[in-house]
């Protein structure tokens, strides 16, 4: 299990380096600038995350590692985390409505408006998907 995780993190680190180099040295033209920046950002993030996960077990004592695992799996922490996510989901409803209304009032380009509305609809589709899935499972 640990070995599989390490292989995934190693693959993530290599992929991160690859994306970074493609973004920094391969995509050089003016039209590719945005895409290049995106690859550098995603590559760096992926590399940092993977390396930190790979090194973590070697930087902390087994006791500390065990404590970190317990904290992550602790049922109260998991419950609090889920409640916080649920609250932020509800809060984002207001944010989306205000954002969409503001964009309409600003007379923003229709394509951008449809993308934001699309994101709002996807959020609700995902919610209904998981609601249905969890109702069947529980």
């Amino acid at each position: 299990m640990m070995k599989t995780k390490n292989i995934i993190y190693l693959a993530g680190a290599i992929l991160g380096i690859g994306l970074f180099f493609i973004g920094a040295f391969v995509l050089q033209s003016n039209e590719q600038r945005i895409f290049s920046g995106l690859l550098i950002g995603v590559g760096s993030g992926l590399f940092g995350l993977s390396v930190s996960q790979l090194l973590l077990p070697h930087l902390v004592s087994p006791k500390q590692q065990r404590r970190i695992e317990i904290e992550a799996q602790d049922e109260r922490n998991v419950t609090i985390n889920n409640y916080a996510k649920a609250r932020s989901f509800d809060g984002m409803d207001v944010v989306y409505v205000v954002l969409i209304a503001s964009l309409i009032l600003m007379g923003i380009e229709r394509m951008i408006l449809f993308m934001v509305i699309g994101a709002y609809i996807i959020r609700w589709i995902l919610y209904l998907f998981y609601l249905n899935k969890l109702h069947k499972e529980m």
Partner: peptide, 13 residues
């Protein structure tokens, strides 16, 4: 907490 494999905060709560 150690025996139950939960955090000390959980026991306190």
């Amino acid at each position: 907490a150690e025996k139950l494999q939960v955090s000390r905060q959980t026991i306190s709560s």
